[in-house]
Design a protein around this nucleic acid. Sequence first.
DNA 1: GCTAAATGTTGAT
DNA 2: TCAACCTTTAGCT
Length: 270
Amino acid sequence: MPEGHTVHRQARELRGRFRGQVVAASSPQGRFEAGAALLDGQAMRAVEAFGKHLFLQVESRVWLHVHLGLAGVWTFGDGPAPTPRGSVRLRLVGGGHWADLRGPVICEVITGPQRRAIHDRLGADPLRRDADPDRAGRLVLRSKVSIGGLLMRQDVVAGIGNVYRAEALFRQRIDPWAAGSSLTPQVWQALWCDLVVLLRDGLRRGRIVTTDVQHRSRRSGTVLAQDAHYVYRRTGLACRVCATTVLAEPMAGRTLYRCPACQRVGSLLA
DNA sequence: GCTAAATGTTGAT
DNA sequence: TCAACCTTTAGCT
């Protein structure tokens, strides 16, 4: 269940196991047999993540393009691959490692130019060095669309999903319904910097934690789930900062979470 | 054990 | 604007 940090983490897992290795590719489920045949028996050259998209290149120079959607999942392992269970769309085996892909929305083999076209329509990815936050900022600052809507647009900022949207806007005290054009450049700058901080942290941990203070389970030492977020999925509970009831409301088909008191038009800088 | 919802996108209406 | 897709998990029973 991925936002951008998950996909970057998976790219790292795939790179570590398979880069430079000859990889056997198959589709136990049968739905990707033709595609798997194009990858099978070739050395893996490169793996990269861009937003929520994953690209994997083999020596014939074609690319595997994967988008997990809501339900897609990678499973990794070392040693002999287990008997495939369930609908494994793609299995990669090589160098003593294996990886199974289930339930992706997109799993296809594409050419270099096709990959470039996908790159070109993606916005700034907070986890990539080549991200251009100024271009994203120009789009935001002259848009009448709400900042909550803009953050979900992958052609503006790539890799942000519903959790990071809710949490970053809360942390900056920005009203999600405020138009992009109502933000100042300073507010945009602060929001972008916080997205970079949050996604890097998510990449390191492997989960999204946005609160500074967490209660830990006494037994396992893990951060309790309900303390990991400020507003995401906390409908009806008291805001951690001001105790006002957290709201949930639909925005463009997704559930938006916010604190109506903390998140007014301005921001921490206003 | 079952059901509904979910960190998402696409394509039809 | 909405259903479809696919899998996992939270929250019931």
